[in-house]
Structure formats: C-alpha cells, structure tokens
Nucleic acid binder design. Structure first.
Length: 581
RNA sequence: GCCGAUAUAGUUUAGUGGUAAAACAGAUCCUUGGUAAGGAUCAGCGGUAAGUUCAAUUCUUACUAUCGGCACCA
C-alpha cells in the first residue's frame, strides 16, 4: 500500500490538491469556512464548516468537476508572507483560520499564505507551482469529524481524496481499494461460514462450525507455544463483585465501558479485563523469590460496552477473548523477560507471515494511577528493552493504559494495512493496589512487578486479520477443510472416494466428500470458491491404480500420487505450518 | 455516542402509491459428467413501530441494525 505521507513529492501534490478541494468547495458553497487540510497516508482531507448545508456522497462528483475546471485553468500557486496582523485581517471572516493564527508561536512573526486565483489559504507549504499539475485525483468519501479531534467540539465535515502524478498510479490505488473490499473479513466470514453477528447481539459474534475449527486450532497452538515458553494456565470468572473493581481501579477509570448487574442486592461487574482475576490467583498462595518469574496465561473472555458506532465485524466487538498472560517478576528480571517476550512474539507472527512495528505508548494525560516517577521509570525500561531486543520503537505519547505504559505491536498484513495486536504492558501499580508480595532470601517481603501481555490481542480480531491477510485461503494447517474429495462419477467411484475419505480422517486430516449428483466441473468450481487447499479428483484411472489426483487451490493442473505419498505431503505441510505459495 | 448513507427471498440485486421480480443458492426429477453455469417442477421476501392515504414495500417520523468516517479502542 502506498503511503503518501512518506513520499515528499506526493505529499506536496496531495497538499496542493487539498487546497484545490477547498477552492472548489468555496465556489460551490460560498458560506464555507475552513479548518485544516492535511496530507495523510492515504491522500488528503479538508475539514469544512458549511453551517446548515451538508455535503453528501453524491455531491463529490460535482465538487470533483469544479476542481477539474479550476485545475484546467491552471492558476499559479503563489506564496505570500504576511505579518500576523495582516493575516488576522485577511482571514477575518473565517473564525477557524483566526483560531489557527492565534495559536501560532509568539515569535513566529511571519505567516505564509498560498494564493491560487480567487482563493487564499493559510499554509506553511510547500506547494506545487500551479494547479495545472493536479490532474489525477479522486474524492473518496465524506464524513463528520470533530473540530480539533475533540468529541466535545462541534462536528465539521471532512472530505477525503487522493492525488497522483499519473492516471496509472491513481488507477492502481483504486484497484487496491477494490482488492481490500474483496478481502473484507465480514464478507468472507459470511461466504466461508466462519462467523455471524445477529441483530439480537450487536457486537457479540457467533462462531460457526468452520470458524470454530479455525479458532480451536489457534487456541491449541497458543497453549502449545506458551507451554514451551514456561507458562502455566488459569481460567478466571467472567463476573466479579464491584469491590474487586474498586481495588483494581477499573470502577473509577473504566466504568462507562463495563456491564454491571445487581445480584442479591450486591453489585457485580462483568470483567472488561482479566488482570484483577489474575491478581487474586497470585495472592492465593505465598511466593518465593525463587519461583519468579511466574508466567500465568489465560484465554479470558472479556466484555466491554463499546460505542455503537465503533463496532466493526470481528475487528471491534463487545465481547472478545484476550490471549492474556500476567508475568510476575522481581525488579532485576524485567528487562530480560521483556526481551525474551519480544522474541517470542516475533516467532509467533513470523509463522503467519506477518511483519510488524513496535510503538511505545506513554502515560495518559488525565486518567492514570500511580506516580509520575514510576511511570517515567517504566517507560524507560520498556524503551531500553525494546532497543536491546534489536527493534526500533516509535513513541505514541499519552496512549498507555491507565495502569502502565506499553509496547504495542502493529502488524502489517499482506495488503500493507496496519493493525494493533500484541502489547506488552509494564505495571507497577496493580501489584501495589492488590498488595502482592513474594518472600526474599532473607525472609522479608518484596513487591513483584508485573507484565500484562497479549500476542494475538484478541482471538476474534486476530481471526479477522487472518481472514483478510490470507484472503480466506488459509494455510493448510489453519484451513477448516483441508481436503475436498470429488469422485468424477459418484456411482462408479463413490466407494473408492469413501475409502479415501476414511483413510484421511484416520490421519486426522480435515476432509469433506462431495459426491452430490452434480456435474464434475460444478463441484470442482465450488471446491475452489470455498478455498480448500487440496481437491482430490477420483476417476476410474485413480480407482484402478489406487492413486489420487490432487489439485492445489488456485491452480489448474493436477498431480497424481499414491495415497501414502499424498498423506505424507499434506502432513508435512501441516506440521511445518507452511504458508501457501 | 456524533455526522452522513443504507435496510426487499439463504445470498447479490431490480422495481413499484394499486398488493413484488431476477440471478445464484435450496428441494424433487431428467441429464452420469475429467475442470462451473442444459432442462422441468417446487418452495421462499419488504428490519420494527407509528403516521399520511380509499390503498404504503414505495411518502413521513421514530426506533433498531448495518456501512463510510469522527471520537473511543484489543
């Protein structure tokens, strides 16, 4: 996927296109007031206040037409430098621009503007020389957007677009958007029978039999890998009393997202996170310094009341299963444990063919518990460990959890889109709140520190990402159906087909027989559209010679091998968790 | 939650102020086929609730859900 922001020339082009958009909007809606029009990874947008008027999807064509007209006229884009006073005068009719000017640095005495024909905009630049260069653009969508990104503010209208230097690049980008649409996990999830969401439970997904196979494989894989890494496992209750959430700080900091209920006059909350339960498990027994680190994993189902507008297939749901674990350590073990964890996460992502970047999210401005000193210390430790693990680490200020800073893993899928999945959160606060201790060599008590961490993030979201990443054509080890067996004529080779099916089933291969009275071509086609990795075609030749002819997903030709050769081939592929070519 | 759009069969869509259509999928049958799309027959539909109207799937309103964003976030 193209990142406009990272390409200097494309950035300038798109920035100029944003001005062109504003100019066209001004022509069509003279009352329009303008906030800002920055370049983003996928093009540009402009935030506009139209008073009572509304730009709708169908108006975009009209605006585009006006933009083309202005561009064709090809006015020069002229930079002007004026004083703050002059600027306040020039933009006196636009309160948004006045706000921008007043927010500027005291010592920034000279303010730059860019003029093209009848339109002048406040702007640092740089810009293209003339509007003539703006030929290959497309307006993509309109929506509301809060002024200054703050939900307390008024909503402006945001128009998104993208601009390229030639028709080909533009077309390529539009094709990419089409491709992404085809891979939409909501669409594929429906087509492949993986999951559903009912109107009776918005944000509460149902897993269907095929999706359940995928999910069970992922969970078993998770248990296996964590066992190798020295984890032990627990399951904690979904619902716990209000007092617990008061101790953990969730009642104070997270309540608006929690489902609560009164039982026998006592208030309870459904867990939005697994940590407090994990704390209680730790406290259940005494711990020696020799036992640390304790790595305690839980595939824990949490419920969070997410805003209705945030829901999106499996990506944003109201109940999901975190592949959670809490690691309790001595202070001197933190760094080593984090480095080890980063390597673990790296190994897991590689198996799926996913690349990633790490970001450090620091202390939120208002909602946090603990002291600023302890936050600073934790942030420094995370950053240092990340560096020592050989990874660069961008800073994402103010995005930490309320109990601690975190390293976030941003996964890049096969289309180059980015998703946040894994996170490692360093927490010195909850051990304090829950008064966790361990016994030292000299018999005194010390406070452990803990890590919260997930690798998939949520099983649901991760499955959504995998669906889109693989476009529904999962590697064989993950495929709900691994082999489809099709007798050319069920009447003549049906028995042989059944024999083959039961043989494969014995080897724990997930196999389906298609001996419907449908044309061969039709059944083959269906095997392809259901994205099954292997289709076995069994005719008289195969039956007589006791062989099978297999066709790989996405390929036309077939290969004939003996049964045992085929089993060996597929079992090796499953064992090695090979990615499909 | 906010801005905007959408809601018709299992799915994808068409169409209409006079009582709903197609394709695919499904069922039964004919066709017994080496890389989908021959035939016959059948079954199935207007998110919910109000309002306007002689008459509403069609117009209006509210609600609900979904989609594109914003805000929030695993």
């Amino acid at each position: 996927m193209i990142n406009i922001k990272e390409d200097e020339k494309l950035s300038v082009l798109n920035h100029s296109c944003a001005h062109l958009l504003a100019q066209a909007v001004k022509h069509l809606y003279p009352e329009a007031k303008f906030w800002v029009g920055p370049v983003i990874e996928e093009g540009f947008y402009y935030d506009i206040d139209l008073g009572d008027e509304v730009i709708k999807e169908e108006d975009l064509a009209k605006i585009e037409k006006e933009m083309k007209k202005i561009a064709k006229d090809g006015k020069r884009i002229i930079r002007k430098e004026i004083s703050k006073k002059e600027a306040l005068e020039t933009f006196k009719d636009d309160p948004y621009k006045i706000d921008l000017i007043n927010r500027m640095d005291e010592n920034e005495e000279v303010i730059s503007c860019y003029q093209q024909g009848d339109f002048t905009d406040l702007c640092r630049g740089p810009h293209m020389e003339t509007t003539k260069d703006l030929k290959y653009f497309k307006l993509l969508k309109v929506s509301g957007a809060y002024w200054k990104g703050d939900a307390k503010n008024k909503m402006l209208q945001r128009v998104y677009g993208i601009c390229f230097f030639n028709e080909n690049d533009l077309q390529e980008h539009l094709n990419f958007l089409e491709e992404a649409k085809k891979r939409d996990h909501r669409k594929l999830g429906k087509e492949l029978g993986l999951f559903m969401i009912s109107d009776y439970g918005p944000g509460f997904p149902f897993f269907l039999p095929k999706g359940m196979i995928l999910r069970n494989i992922l969970e078993n894989f998770w248990y296996e890998e964590h066992t190798k890494e020295g984890y032990e496992f627990i399951k904690t209750p979904i619902m716990l009393s209000k007092e617990l959430w008061e101790v953990s700080g969730h009642w104070e900091n997270y309540r608006e997202n929690m489902y609560t209920s009164v039982i026998d006059d006592k208030e309870f909350a459904i867990k939005p996170m697994n940590c407090p339960g994990g704390m209680l498990v730790y406290k259940n027994t005494l711990h020696s310094y020799k036992d640390l680190p304790i790595r305690c994993g839980e595939l824990g189902q949490v419920h969070r009341h997410e805003a209705s507008g945030a829901l999106n297939g499996l990506f944003r749901v109201r109940t999901f299963t975190q592949d959670d674990a809490h690691i309790f350590m001595r202070e001197d073990q933190i760094e080593e444990e984090i480095i080890r964890l980063i390597a673990f996460i790296d190994r897991i992502y590689k198996i799926f063919g996913l690349t990633y970047e790490i970001e450090l999210s620091t202390r939120p401005e208002d909602k946090f518990i603990g002291t600023i000193e302890s936050w600073n210390r934790s942030e420094a430790i995370l950053q240092e460990a990340c560096k020592k693990a050989g990874h660069e680490c961008k800073i994402n200020p103010g995005d930490g959890a309320f109990y601690g800073p975190k390293l976030d893993f941003h996964i890049k899928d096969s289309l180059g889109r980015v998703w946040q999945c894994g996170t490692i959160q360093l927490d010195a606060n909850l051990p304090e709140r829950f008064d966790l201790t361990y016994i030292n060599q000299d018999g005194t008590k010390s406070r452990p520190v803990m890590l919260h961490r997930v690798i998939f993030g949520s099983i649901e979201r991760f499955i959504g990402i995998l669906i889109e990443h693989f476009a529904g054509a999962f590697p064989t080890w993950l495929s709900p159906v691994q082999v489809k067996v099709i007798p050319v004529n069920p009447e003549f080779q049906g028995d042989y087909a059944k024999e083959v099916v039961s043989f494969l089933k014995e080897k724990n291969i997930r196999v389906e027989l298609d001996d419907r009275n449908e044309k061969l071509g039709y059944r083959l086609r269906e095997a392809q559209t259901s994205k099954v990795p292997y289709t076995l075609i069994l005719g008289d030749k195969e039956k007589e010679e006791k062989i099978v002819s297999y066709r790989l997903y996405g390929q036309k030709e077939t290969t004939s091998v003996t049964m045992s050769q085929f089993v060996e081939l597929i079992l090796t592929e499953i064992k090695e968790k090979s990615l499909r070519k």
